[in-house]
Each structure stands twice: as structure tokens, then as C-alpha cells.
Amino acid sequence: MRRWALYAGLFFLWAPIALMVAYAFSDGRTPYIWGGFSFRWFHALAANERLLEAAWLSLRIAAAAATLATLLGLVLGWVLARHGPFRGRPLFGALAGAPLVLPEVVMGLSFLLLIVGLQGLTGWPAQRGAMTVWLAHSALGMAFVAVLVQARLAALDPRLEEAAADLGASPFIVFRTITLPLIMPSLLAGWGLAFTLSLDDVVLASFVSGPGATTLPVYLFSALRLGLTPEANALATLLLGAAATLLLVYALAARWRARVETPPSRE
């Protein structure tokens, strides 16, 4: 089979990344000029207090935003999949999908104006910071969760829930023991997606964060505008390593589950 396009595309995707990873271990002060092998940029990274602080804040915001996004996305996906053609459904669907198709800069601006408007009307939130970034990232993430949950709910076999209800389970018990476990994969995938989106977002966060709350991408963006440092290569290498490890664990777990859950063949 001719796979040249796949190979060419992967080469294009990976060549810059491979160079970043390789030069993360270069001793040279100038990025992309080889200066002998060393770990100095990883040490520099570990000693960069502002970067570490920003990274820690980003991780906390991403986890909190992914959690809220999953809750709200579950509600939206549920309504879209289960509530039939209620009045205003086209508008509901359009609003639920809007964050998927809004450019980040438009979303950032609109969110900031909302916050300023709220401040003017109610005095809350008192200032822009981690809290406002959290809300903005939750709004972005919930749209992605909603799509995943809606698709999963639509693909469920309704007889499973009907059977539980026929056997006397209350709607809450049906949801908790049948529906929730069945849509759990979409919730986990949605959480992971929302987490990644939050961790990687620079534009939205730049608009809605205040001076006290610098997330990692916001910090990196201002550092990169001033010039490139080999520390960026080291950071990219660490992120890639973490992602590759997670993916490997996921693949192994999936394979293990497939083996455990496959019923033994009948003798």
C-alpha cells in the first residue's frame, strides 16, 4: 500500500519536535546550535521559580476547569440527547456548540467583557485572576464534553435502562448503576480533553487573567516574545515524555481490560 502521504505528514509533524527534544540536551547557550551533551537546561528549568509557580497554577486551574466542564457538559449532553424536540432546542444546541467554533480571541474578548460587566453591576468578581480563568476554561471545555456525552448517550441501548426501571429501580438508581457507568468513558475522555485545552490555552487566559495569576502558557508567551531559550526545548521534552507515558499506560490498560473482559470461549 502506498503510504507516502502518511510518512510525509508524520515527518512534517515530528521533525521540529525531534529537533526540540534533541537540542534540549545540548550544552550550548544558543538554541539549535549543538554544544555537547548536558542536562543543564533541565536544571535551569527546575530552578526557574516563576515558571514552576505558573505550571503549578496551570495544573490546578486545568483540573478544576475540567471537573466543572465535565459536570456542565454532562448536563448539556443529557438534555440534547434525552429531552427530545423541546421548545428552543435549536438555540440550545447552537449555544452548546458555539464554543467549538468560536475563535479563541473572540471568546477571550467576550468573556472579559462579561466579567467587566459583572464587576460593574454586582462588584463580583472583585478582580481577574485564577477564578475567572477557571470559569472561561470551563465554558470552553463543557462544549467538548457535551458533544462526547451526547454521542455516547445516543449510542446506548435504551433497553438496558428500561430493564432496570422495570425491575423497580428508581430513576436515580438507574442513572447511577446503569447510565453513569456506561457513559463513563465519554466523561473521562471529556475530562482529559478539557484538561488539555485548559493547560494549553494562552489567548483566553491572557484576556481573563489578572496580574496575580500567570498561567504557564501566559508566562511562556511573554518569555517567547522576548526570545527563545533552550529551556523551552527542555519543557517540551518533559511534556512529550509525560504524554507518551500516559498514552502507553492507557494502551496497556486497554489491552489488559480486553483480555480480562473477553469471556472464555465455550468448550
Partner: peptide
């Protein structure tokens, strides 16, 4: 193959752009 297409996502958008600056 899909994993290889998706993994670059997790190097961080800004850092991938910075790789092009370096190139």
C-alpha cells in the same frame, strides 16, 4: 499511527510554534 498524529498536541501549542522559530 493515530497516537503518532496526536502526540505532538501534548508538546504544547506554544512550544511547537517556538520550534519553528528555532528552525
Amino acid at each position: 499511527w493515530l497516537a503518532l498524529v496526536l502526540l505532538p498536541f501534548w508538546t504544547g501549542f506554544l512550544l511547537r510554534v517556538s520550534a519553528w522559530v528555532g528552525l
